[in-house]
Design a protein around this nucleic acid. Structure first.
Lengths: 211, 211
DNA sequence: GTCTATAAACAGATAGAC
DNA sequence: GTCTATCTGTTTATAGAC
């Protein structure tokens, strides 16, 4: 399962601690002592299980891409008609909004991944290759099928980025959104409002590209 | 100009170093020694001019909100008609895309502010109150005038967040965008393509809200 | 596998010379 | 105002007992 062939739940605990603390305070802002304390173990176990603090970071990134892929790919399929493609994208967007904006359980994962995306590095490279690119391609494929365009069309690719960007921004700016809209929190109802807006934008954007 | 009444260009140099290094490597990832070296001075000057490393961070945030406000508020005015309001929003969005996505000079500023927004704290609070909220309100006012809705309408507020979110995401994910579109860089032409897309989305979004 | 103790490097802040 | 030297605490990594 890992470099040294070990298999304990100290390992899993450290990954959870990493997701939470790296995501919340950043990699540099988190000390190995905090990580160990949060996981209920000692500093030496980080080196033992992951080689180094950086090794734990990579393991966290791997855990995140795995789980997010599973959460999203459940909504993936290969549709036959334009209508089916549109329906599938909408289903995918709802899953994305639920995961990124509305899921308190996924909050640590999303925060972790957002940080890794923001700062270029080896981990961001891995995230791009194994997660972002394949899913962006899949979305472009669906978009192309729903609009009759080529999946390699620059406008299609940009529109898909803009689509995902809206969703991610609602997570990034969620403290601002909550204050500006006098929301107490972003619960089920608020998540639905956001998803409705994004899907309306999505439909308009597709209609325009069809012409 | 500051706490101790000093006024040197060592001060300005440290702020530039802060924008670049805090923005690129994060606050915790940047040491006072790096900051001093980048500014061509010594560590003690940080305490002298700003009290502490955290003081330099605040000074950087203030510099960013000042400059970004000036860069954007040039495109602000109070229009009389629906058409004028729409035109003004489009002008503002182009200014925003130029600044956030297309301006290499503003890259440090944008990176710095993005980090501060991402991690909640005193600085993010200041950025919200003095920069985000007033400009979001102004945009909602224009949007309301162009659509005939109330500026306090939740759908208006959310649509404006989604609008800004698209733009910011193109900066956040710019390494991904560049790779997926086989762009060498995001230059004038690419910036225009992004602005065109965002403005198309904006028009559709407004048309829908008018109904 | 887990943990304590410690090594070696580095952090931010400051005293005091100029 | 600027800078060197240094204080004090913390960092990651690891050696070695269990």
């Amino acid at each position: 399962m890992n470099d040294s062939g070990t298999n304990s739940d100290t390992r899993a605990g450290l990954i959870e601690a990493g997701l939470e603390l790296f995501g919340h305070k950043g990699f540099d802002g988190t000390s190995t002592r905090e990580l160990a304390a949060r996981a209920g173990t000692n500093v030496a176990s980080i080196s033992y299980h992951f080689g180094s603090k950086a090794g734990l970071r990579e393991a966290c990134a791997l855990a995140v891409t795995d789980r997010m892929s599973r959460a999203l790919d459940g909504a993936l399929a290969t549709p036959d008609t334009e209508e089916a493609a549109l329906g599938l994208i909408e289903k995918l967007v709802r899953a994305l909004v639920d995961l990124i904006v509305g899921s308190p359980e996924a909050a640590n994962m999303v925060a972790f991944m957002l940080r890794e995306i923001t700062e270029p590095g080896d981990v961001a490279e891995m995230v791009y290759r194994s997660f972002v690119e394949p899913r962006h391609k899949a979305l472009c494929g669906l978009w192309a099928m729903a609009t009759g365009r080529s999946p390699d069309d620059a406008e299609v690719k940009l529109a898909v980025f803009a689509l995902v960007g809206q969703v991610l921004y609602f997570r990034i700016a969620s403290p601002f959104v909550i204050r500006r809209l006098s929301w107490g929190e972003i619960g089920q109802d608020e998540t639905r409002q956001i998803a409705d807006l994004v899907i309306d934008n999505l439909r308009n954007s597709m209609e325009r590209q069809k012409k």
